[in-house]
């Protein structure tokens, strides 16, 4: 893989690795560019978030791969692998938190929704977006709640069949 004997930029293999890395970087950068365009062109926060996920996930992964192909020393490669892994773990958390807030607040243009099965079925345990609740702290971070507290197998405890079919649930 790494060929420390040849001077940099000389051997054919190294040039080939550089070329592949460059192609990868170019694609990643183009994705980032298009995402910035989408950030301006899409109509509401939730839609823009979809555009935002692109440079954060696939774009960054491609660029990191490209950078690793260019740098080629094991220290850098492993650190770049870590960057990719961190990004894969953390990006959806941000997306989820922001998306949740956006839907509860005014971050989504309801007139542009084909179906909104969440607003159609407000949760009884959950203060809706209409309630002001100015001083109450945000309900606990959603992530720990979904991450599983060893309560497996008890999740079907409440009335499943009743609420699910309400709203425009026309699909199979």
């Amino acid at each position: 893989m790494s060929a420390p004997t040849a001077p940099p930029g000389e051997s054919g293999l190294e040039v080939a690795l550089d070329a592949v890395g460059t192609v990868s970087i170019v694609v990643g950068v183009l994705l980032a560019l298009v995402a910035s365009v989408g950030l301006l062109s899409l109509p509401d926060v939730l839609s823009r978030m979809h555009a935002a996920t692109k440079p954060q996930v696939l774009g960054l992964l491609l660029v990191v791969i490209g950078g690793a192909l260019h740098l080629r020393t094991s220290v850098d490669v492993w650190m770049l692998v870590l960057v990719g892994a961190f990004q894969l773990v953390t990006a959806p958390v941000t997306a989820h938190v922001v998306g949740r807030l956006a839907h509860r607040g005014d971050g989504v243009r309801r007139d542009l929704l084909h179906v909104d099965e969440l607003t159609d079925r407000p949760d009884t345990t959950d203060p809706g977006p209409d309630e002001p609740e100015p001083d109450e702290p945000e309900p606990e971070e959603p992530e720990p709640a979904t991450r599983g507290r060893g309560r497996d197998g008890t999740g079907h405890a409440d009335g499943d069949g009743t609420g699910r079919r309400r709203g425009r649930d026309g699909a199979p």
């Binding site: 890395g21 460059t22 970087i25 990643g28 950068v29 980032a32 440079p55 774009g59 960054l60 660029v63 990191v64 490209g66 950078g67 260019h70 740098l71 850098d76 770049l80």
Partner: peptide, 8 residues
């Protein structure tokens, strides 16, 4: 992304 490209 820019930092990685610059490093490359």
């Amino acid at each position: 992304v820019g930092l990685v490209v610059y490093a490359a």
